[in-house]
Computed example of a mutant assay.
Amino acid sequence: MIQSIKRATFDEPTSAIWETSMLPLPSAQQLRYLIALSELRHFGRAAAACAVTQSTLSAGIMALERQLDATLLDRTVGKKVVFTPLGHEIALKARQALAALESVPQLAAAARTPLTGPMRLGIIPTIGPFLIPQTVTILREHFPRLLLSITEDTTEHLLEKLALGQLDILALAMPCLCDGTETHPLWQDPFRVIMPEGHPLASMSTVPVSRLSSHGMVMMEDGHCLREQTLAICRQGPNRAGTEGESETTFTAMSLHSMAEMVELGLGIAIMPALAIDGGILRGRRILSRPLTGGPAWRTLGLAWRPRSPRAADFQTLSATLATLRPPESP
Rank of each mutant, 00 (worst) to 15 (best):
Q67G: 02
R95N: 09
I5C: 02
E246V: 05
A111W: 08
W18V: 13
A232K: 10
M174G: 09
L148E: 05
R192S: 06
S309W: 04
A108P: 00
L115M: 15
M119A: 15
L322P: 07
L147R: 08
V104M: 14
G117T: 05
C50G: 01
Q316L: 14
R286P: 09
L131E: 03
L177K: 13
L226D: 04
I124F: 08
M262S: 06
S213M: 07
F143I: 01
A47H: 04
L64D: 05
Q188M: 04
I138T: 11
I2T: 14
L139E: 07
I271K: 03
S258Q: 15
A163N: 07
I61S: 09
L265S: 12
Q106H: 13
S309E: 06
P208H: 11
R235M: 14
M254F: 06
A323R: 15
K93Y: 08
L146Q: 06
G284N: 12
I287L: 13
A70E: 11
S203H: 13
L139N: 10
S210V: 09
S210D: 07
M62S: 13
G128N: 05
L162D: 05
A109R: 12
A304W: 01
A109V: 07
M62P: 00
R240P: 00
T76K: 11
H42N: 10
S58H: 09
M204I: 07
Q229N: 06
R286S: 15
R306H: 08
I35C: 08
L267F: 15
P200C: 11
L37D: 01
L147K: 06
A232C: 09
S289W: 03
R285K: 15
A49Y: 01
F130T: 08
Q67K: 15
L64P: 05
A59E: 06
C50S: 10
K79R: 12
A51Q: 11
P175V: 01
S55R: 12
R286L: 15
I281N: 01
S214M: 08
G266M: 07
L23A: 11
L101H: 10
I269Y: 04
L68P: 02
S203N: 09
S319M: 12
W305K: 11
P296C: 11
L146V: 03
F130D: 08
M220Y: 02
L92E: 11
L256Q: 04
I5G: 01
K6I: 00
T56L: 06
C225P: 00
Q3R: 14
G302D: 01
Q96G: 05
E12W: 14
V209F: 03
M1Q: 06
R306V: 03
I277Q: 09
E197K: 09
T206L: 10
G294C: 12
T154V: 09
T76I: 00
L231C: 07
D153K: 06
V104W: 11
L64F: 09
W305P: 08
A202L: 02
P238F: 10
D168Q: 08
I132D: 08
F315P: 02
S4M: 07
V218E: 04
L92R: 13
R41P: 00
S149G: 05
L322V: 04
I127C: 09
I233R: 01
I194C: 10
E89Q: 13
E152F: 02
T249D: 00
G60Y: 02
R120P: 07
R95L: 13
Q54N: 03
A63Q: 14
L68R: 12
A16D: 05
A46M: 09
P327W: 14
